[in-house]
Design a protein around this nucleic acid. Structure first.
Length: 423
RNA sequence: GGAAAGUUGGCAGAGUGGUCGAAUGCGGCGGUCUUGAAAACCGUUGUCUGUAACAGGACCGGGGGUUCGAAUCCCUCACUUUCCGCCA
């Protein structure tokens, strides 16, 4: 959520930057400013009545104590009208406040100055590419066929148990998953992230805090009986640990990592691009979340990007890094790097990580603040990144490393899997 | 699932209708003392909103009500804790 004070003072700039984000409803900016002004003038009026009512009440108290009953009664009679006036104001203020808030939350985050203008994925900027795009030999299989051939991932079984998008990992397939989770967590620990285990069902306050609610409601599975949501990413519970928290400057940087399953409804996604492991309703992910001083957040974003790249290098997967254009960025992000891995068999790039700086967009909702050196309250900056999402990594590992003999497990994973070959 | 109690400032914990934005303790900050530190002592210490600065306004789990006046009384919702039941 943007800060209204910032919009008030930087109207032109806000509009310009929203244009970079390809935001279609620029009129909302003036709408929110209009509501803000209306709201504030109404508040001034209502508060002056409150002030009068308060001082009258105080006076009555004093008179009563002095035993001057008649005088007190006289003021009492006058005071009766305040109540009616205040009631009228609150009746207007309530709906107006709601309208204001509804409008304000419809404004997405402002993109950072490095974010390129653009509509969609076509306009993303390729920052770098690493590793050769190996040509697989004739007869190489996509991962879903490899999964069937070695009987390690069973999509049909998942359909029976739950539905499409809920695969069952079997034998070495399951063990590879577990190995990757442990590998990613160990690496994150070594990089200074504290490991946390968090709930995967969250309440609506948490959904709001990180920006999934109210807009992305349809993306999440909702457990109506208990009014809870299955998390689409560990970002939600981990970042919400800092909701309503006042930090000290020396607490920074706060680095947490969590492994969780993630659940996404992905309504309306079908076709070749969602085949196999490409897009699932349930998948595993190790997530990084940092809470940092505003001055350092872009430094930290680079650091996180490099960290994610180091994982991909260790796994020997060719990858590229994209800086997302305004139009392709998420609602809440100020700048995002996507890491994509080359799927040799599908001959296309697959997103395996997304690293974002949210600046104060989340912390303003979360009320996650710190006292700065001058003793003033400031909103923290929050960042997160996948390190990494498993399914597409698994897909690429299977495809890249297929040989006549079987699938060769990358060296760094062997201590974790306990086997070198899937055959 | 049943029963009871509770929700107050960074934390602990007083406060049952007016001088309560809230005692006290801890913690934090500043100072005295000390070569330095600790202890002790003194002072200070909530958030949001608003103003050029004052002033003013709001906040004692959320919402509503009673009253001239509510942390305090009433209604309602949510959550937490404890005991019993069930259970990995």
């Amino acid at each position: 959520m943007l800060q209204i004070s910032y919009i008030r003072e930087n109207r032109e700039e806000v509009i310009d930057r929203l244009k970079v984000k390809n935001f279609g409803q620029l009129g909302l900016v003036d709408e929110v400013l209009r509501l803000d002004e209306e709201l504030r003038s109404l508040k001034v009026a209502s508060e002056s009545i409150s002030a009068e009512a308060n001082s009258a009440a105080k006076k009555i108290g004093e008179l009563m104590r002095q035993g001057k009953k008649e005088e007190a009664e006289a003021i009492k009679a006058q005071s009766a009208s305040y109540k009616e006036q205040l009631k009228q104001y609150t009746e207007q203020l309530g709906p107006l406040e709601a309208k204001f808030f509804d409008t304000l939350v419809q404004l997405p985050n402002l993109p950072y100055h490095l974010v390129p203008e653009g509509k969609d994925a076509e306009d993303n900027e390729v920052v770098l590419q690493h590793g050769d795009l190996v040509e697989l030999p004739e007869g190489a299989l996509p991962h879903w066929e490899l999964a069937a051939k070695y009987d390690i991932i069973d999509f049909e079984l998942g359909v029976k148990v739950s539905g499409a998008g809920f695969p069952v990992y079997k034998g070495k397939g399951a063990r590879l998953q577990r190995a990757l989770i442990n590998f990613f967590l160990d690496k994150a620990n070594a990089a200074g992230y504290r490991e946390v285990q968090v709930p995967i069902l969250v309440n609506s306050d948490s959904g709001f805090g990180t920006g999934q609610l109210p807009d992305k409601e349809g993306q999440m599975y909702y457990v109506g009986n208990d009014d809870m949501y299955l998390i689409p990413t560990a970002e939600v519970p981990v970042t919400n640990m800092y909701r309503d928290v006042i930090l000290k400057e020396e607490d920074f940087p706060i680095k947490n990592t969590a492994y969780t399953p993630c659940f996404r409804r992905e309504a309306g996604s079908y076709g070749a691009h969602v085949r196999g492991l490409n897009r699932l309703h349930q998948f595993d992910k190790v997530e990084l979340v940092q809470v940092v001083h505003p001055k350092r957040s872009y430094e930290v974003l680079e650091e996180m990007s490099l960290y994610v790249q180091s994982l991909l290098k260790e796994l020997r997967l060719p990858y590229r890094v994209l800086r997302l254009c305004g139009g392709d960025m998420s609602f809440t992000s100020a700048m995002t790097y996507d890491m994509e891995v080359w799927s040799a068999a599908q001959k296309r790039w697959l997103e395996v990580s997304s690293v974002s700086n949210f600046e104060t967009y989340q912390s303003n909702r979360l009320k996650a603040r710190f006292k700065d050196a001058d003793g003033k309250m400031q909103l923290v900056h929050t960042l997160n990144g996948s390190a990494l999402a498993l399914p597409r990594i698994v897909a690429c590992i299977l495809e890249e490393n297929q040989t006549e003999r079987g699938i060769k497990i990358p060296d760094v994973l062997v201590p974790y899997t306990g086997f070198e070959w899937i055959d």
